[in-house]
Computed example of a mutant assay.
Amino acid sequence: MASSALQLLGFVLSLGGLGATIAATCMVTWKRLESNTSVRQTYQGLWMTCSGFNNKETSCELHESLFDLPIEVQATRAVMLFSIFLASVGVLVSTVGMKCTRFLDGNDKTKNAVAMAGGIMFMLSGVLTLAITSWYVRKIVQTFYGAHHKNRYEFGNAVFTSWAGAVLMLTGGVFLSCRRCSQSRPLVNLPNLRPKFQPTPNSSTDYV
């Protein structure tokens, strides 16, 4: 029962991490440029750029040309999509391998191996998401110190959402791929430690 609960917890965490990764990929707040003079805010995501005044009359424009985008946007977009695909496959594989499902009943070794494979997929997806997001932030920081003060971008909420998704998938993948967590522990029959009763001879029968 404990192993099934841990597998289910890992699956829920991984599923939440996948949802956060999808949300971060679709969000437009990867980079933020705020002008103090006109209170104009500009957000740049992986797919579009939005700008407006105090979140009013916001206009967005899609990135039409792939080759005109910075290299960090192109690489982050590709890695995030691959991470989502890998985690989606991990959802299907983990569903088959978890003990609370009826797939592959009667074959515990195969179910444990399938659950472990799904957990490894989640962990790989989390590592890819964490690595590409951290590299994207590093690029923003490098540009921040090298650009003019009016054109300095800062990383936005999508970065934190992506990091949170990566941590959730890594944690959930560890629970799913843990061998000790997926194996049921057999009950151990403890020996009877109670002392055996040995009747003592009656002193009245010792002498005739």
Rank of each mutant, 00 (worst) to 15 (best):
W30K: 03
T143P: 01
V188T: 14
S4F: 06
V159N: 01
L187A: 14
L15C: 13
G16T: 04
F160Y: 12
S38I: 04
T76K: 05
G45N: 05
Q44H: 03
G52C: 07
Q74L: 11
N36G: 14
M121Q: 10
L190V: 05
L130P: 03
L6A: 07
V137E: 06
L124H: 00
Y153A: 11
I132W: 02
E64Y: 10
T58C: 01
L46G: 05
L124G: 12
Y43R: 05
K111W: 10
S83D: 09
P191K: 09
M169G: 01
F155T: 12
F67K: 01
G126Q: 06
P195T: 02
C60H: 08
C100D: 14
A117H: 00
S94C: 08
V96L: 15
N112C: 06
I120T: 07
G19S: 14
S184F: 11
C100H: 10
T133W: 01
L193K: 05
R32W: 10
T110I: 09
G118M: 04
C26W: 03
G90E: 09
G146L: 11
V79P: 06
K99G: 15
M80H: 09
W47P: 01
E64P: 01
S134W: 04
G52D: 12
E34T: 13
V28R: 06
N55K: 06
E57V: 01
R152E: 11
E72R: 06
M123N: 07
N112P: 00
W47Y: 14
T76P: 07
T205K: 10
S35E: 14
A164H: 01
T95K: 00
M123F: 08
R180M: 11
Q41M: 13
M121T: 00
Y43G: 00
Q74R: 14
A113V: 00
L66C: 02
T200L: 13
C178W: 12
L86S: 07
E34V: 14
G146V: 02
G90Y: 03
S88Q: 05
L104W: 08
L86P: 00
L81W: 11
G106K: 03
H149C: 10
K56H: 13
T37I: 12
D206H: 03
I84S: 10
M121L: 15
T95I: 14
L128F: 15
S38Y: 13
L168D: 07
W47H: 11
P70D: 13
L130Y: 13
R180K: 14
H148L: 13
V93T: 09
G17S: 08
F155H: 15
T161S: 09
L130V: 00
T129D: 10
M98A: 07
P199Y: 11
G97F: 04
F122G: 02
P191G: 03
C50Q: 10
L18P: 08
L46C: 06
A5E: 10
